[in-house]
Simulated assay, not measured.
Amino acid sequence: MSAQLPDATPTNWVDRHAPAALQPWLKLGRFDRPAGIWLLMLPGWQGAALAGAMEGLFPDLMLLAKIFVGAALMRAAGCAFNDIVDRDIDAKVARTALRPVASGQISVKQALAFIALCSLVSLGILLTMPPLAIWLGVASLALVAAYPFMKRITWWPQAWLGLTFNWGGVLAFAAATGTMSWAAILLYAGGVFWTLGYDTIYAIQDLEDDALVGVKSSTRRLGTAVQKGVLAFYVAAFALALAAAWVGGLGPLFLPLAALYGMHLSRQAARVDTTNGPLALALFKSNSFAGLLLFFALVAGMWKGPVASF
């Protein structure tokens, strides 16, 4: 049985129930830490919800299912690729030293085979979508491939993660409509700032280790201004979500749930503490709920009522 990783909850299903032989593979794909699946999936669900709401419809349930499976698989593939690239750095950082590749439980060749399998299944899902969505899916590979190297060349790898993790929003919109819209692009931009905020919080856990091994992050770059930076990112995320709903002509029921989304983000920013790693992890994980609030706000926006938009 492989050791439980520090950022996995003690009650995670992999450590409790998965066969010992499968545990390293499931941990390679981060299935013991599902928060990342939610955070990759939710922008796609939001894009599908926006597309439906603009037409006064619920999002397509089959499309939501495809996004869920695709997000789980592509997140697994991306994490495995990241672990291959970062295996030497991971071995020197307390939080990541026990990851399967860094600890030698899974070889680089085995991890590459894992990536290929996840990618092939994801490709099969992608090929069921309209041409524009397929091309957007192919284009996302450049973002995914470049991400592990960003922490070596820029202080803002969290911004690149935002570009990568929220690409599913425009892809899902294209899958639902076969076209693109400024509303979808604004929603995507808002998601980039959302990710920049929550991943800046996440990186608080590694401040000391990142400084020792020379890894760059927005958290290190902001220094004593981390809390102000996160607040600024979240204000931009909220404003752009409002702009997307306005341009998309969503109904007034979007606003109450969107307000809860904004309140959730503001409370996170208010609690940021660069000396408290466990709190940072908890705040990061709470973004699954924040993303769901925005998703349901977009769904509620399908009801236009007596006016065209709020």
Rank of each mutant, 00 (worst) to 15 (best):
A239C: 11
A239T: 04
A239E: 02
A241E: 02
A241K: 06
A241M: 04
A241W: 03
L242N: 08
L242T: 03
L242R: 00
L242G: 07
A243Q: 02
A244P: 09
A244C: 11
W246R: 08
W246F: 10
W246Q: 02
V247W: 13
G248M: 06
G248R: 00
G248I: 01
G248L: 00
G248Q: 01
G249R: 05
G249L: 04
G249S: 11
G249K: 10
G249E: 06
L250H: 01
G251F: 06
G251W: 07
G251R: 02
G251D: 09
G251I: 02
G251C: 04
P252R: 13
L253G: 00
F254S: 02
F254C: 07
F254A: 00
F254Y: 12
F254V: 10
L255T: 06
P256F: 07
L257D: 05
L257E: 09
L257Q: 06
L257S: 11
L257T: 01
A258I: 06
A258G: 03
A258R: 06
A258L: 05
A259E: 07
A259L: 14
A259Q: 08
A259P: 01
A259C: 15
L260E: 03
L260M: 15
Y261P: 07
Y261W: 15
Y261A: 06
Y261K: 05
Y261N: 03
Y261C: 10
G262H: 06
G262E: 02
H264P: 11
H264M: 08
L265E: 08
L265S: 03
L265C: 13
L265H: 09
L265P: 00
S266M: 13
R267F: 12
R267V: 14
Q268H: 15
Q268M: 12
A269W: 02
A269M: 09
A269E: 11
A269N: 00
A270N: 13
A270Q: 07
R271G: 03
R271K: 15
R271C: 05
R271E: 13
R271P: 10
V272D: 01
D273R: 12
D273V: 08
T274V: 15
T274Q: 05
T275Y: 11
T275S: 15
T275W: 10
N276K: 01
G277N: 08
G277C: 13
G277L: 10
P278W: 12
P278M: 11
P278K: 14
L279Q: 12
A280P: 12
A280R: 08
A280F: 05
L281M: 12
L281K: 09
A282D: 14
A282S: 15
A282V: 12
A282N: 04
L283S: 04
F284P: 01
F284Q: 01
F284I: 06
F284K: 03
F284G: 02
S286I: 04
S286K: 12
S286E: 14
S286G: 15
N287V: 01
N287R: 06
S288D: 03
S288R: 15
S288I: 14
S288G: 15
S288Y: 12
F289H: 14
F289S: 10
A290F: 01
A290Q: 08
A290W: 10
G291H: 03
G291A: 09
L292V: 11
L292P: 08
L292E: 05
L292H: 14
L293H: 03
L293W: 08
L293R: 02
L294M: 14
L294F: 09
F295H: 03
F296H: 02
F296D: 09
A297Q: 04
A297V: 13
A297F: 09
A297C: 07
